[in-house]
Design a binder for these strands. Structure first.
Lengths: 220, 220
DNA sequence: TCTCAATGTAGTCATTGACTACATCGGGCG
DNA sequence: CGCCCGATGTAGTCAATGACTACATTGAGA
């Protein structure tokens, strides 16, 4: 800690995440970060070309972490494809609440406008995983009438919008006391909508009385 | 135009909207605005206390305009409550594409964090109108099993999320050529889901078999 | 006509991002 | 073993910006 810091890059990312969680991206300043870590104001430039570069790095990490988080949440071995998809959606929203810095940096307009290959690839991997899960759910009877792309975007829009609402102080002020957990479950039930699957003709065999019974073939 | 501008306040709002539409909120500067309009750098402070005050004014105008826009789009006299709700949703997303400055200022985190009474009221009016439309749709058989609040938030999250996706360059890059209009229609069909209503017991008389017929094209 | 509130101007300061030149450290190579 | 050089951090600087203060101009109404 004398002249060289040790791992300034990592420290910058961690401190930035803490600041963003507290004050949002708008409250982040490179000079403030340097001061917090006890280095000179120019030190961060050795690790990040500019402010967007730091945010983009955080955003890329966030997409990768979100991928692991949703994978872990959706990987219950006994879940049928519909429950799997619902679990992915619930995990997405919970992740946004538990890791606000990842959420905010990942959706910052400057970052999206200046995305690099690493960020695009991390984003693309999530989309591919989601599309696979969507296909599996459709094969199990969910929204079979819709194009897979529309069905995927429908689910993605719902969870992204719900996360946005839960991060929006104006919305939070209007719905008042609502418990986020109950809201997430309730909304995701409307997105996945097992009743509609049972009402239409299911592709796999589903007994019309069982609600969440196990369709064993959960295609990873 | 010699010493006094005439209507600087209005000119500032209009120019700000144009800048935001082009470069986003991040590209907006009060001094740049003043220069564009040929006034001194301190002139804007006579009409807006600070930058957030200007954005908040734009956001409030935007919520009011969105209310009128959706009301106009959803007010087809012969539409049933489900089509009405779907029209509101489609209008929301179209509005966000046609008026990006209203959309972006209205969802800026600084603005949401520093909302004043006027903004909260404009927001609340939209929520009330949406809740009424949701109640009507539920009375007509839509998602009757869900609490009205959950059903409303489900629809709101879907359209807000879809708008966010359509404004996100990374998403746009991944879905490629997709036509926004077709996407909006396709996703809203999944949100409103007339088939599920007809499959369960409808409150109003609905003939099973017809899928998308009957509704006059909600073009315009 | 005179007054004064509304509106615009000029000057200033602190903060911030970004750039350049210089200092220090430490590992690999002669 | 010692030197060299790339990596890392420092100090200084500049332009852009938001926000503040003091002053100037206008025009409507008492």
């Amino acid at each position: 800690m004398t002249y060289h810091h040790g791992n300034l890059r990592k420290a910058l990312l961690e401190r930035a995440a803490a600041v963003i969680a507290e004050q949002g991206v708008e409250g982040l300043s490179l000079r403030g970060l340097a001061q917090d870590l006890g280095v000179s104001h120019a030190a961060p430039s050795r690790h990040f070309r500019d402010k967007v570069d730091l945010l983009r790095t955080l955003a890329t990490e966030g997409h990768e972490a979100l991928g692991r988080y949703t994978f872990a949440a959706g990987n219950q071995p006994d879940a049928d494809p519909l429950e799997h998809l619902a679990a992915l959606g619930r995990a997405y929203v919970r992740f946004s609440l538990e890791h606000p810095a990842y959420y905010r940096s990942g959706r910052h307009p400057e970052v999206a406008a200046q995305a690099d290959d690493a960020l695009k690839e991390a984003y693309g991997k999530r989309m591919e995983a989601l599309l696979r899960a969507t296909h599996a759910a459709q094969a199990a009877g969910w929204r079979q009438d819709a194009p897979a792309l529309h069905a995927m975007i429908f689910g993605l829009a719902a969870v992204r919008g719900l996360a946005a609402l839960l991060h929006d102080p104006i919305f939070r002020g209007h719905v008042g006391d609502a418990d986020p957990g109950a809201l997430i479950d309730g909304v995701m039930r409307l997105v996945i909508d097992p009743a509609a699957v049972r009402a239409s003709a299911p592709a796999e065999m589903v007994e019309p009385g069982e609600i969440t019974a196990g369709a064993p073939d959960a295609a990873s």
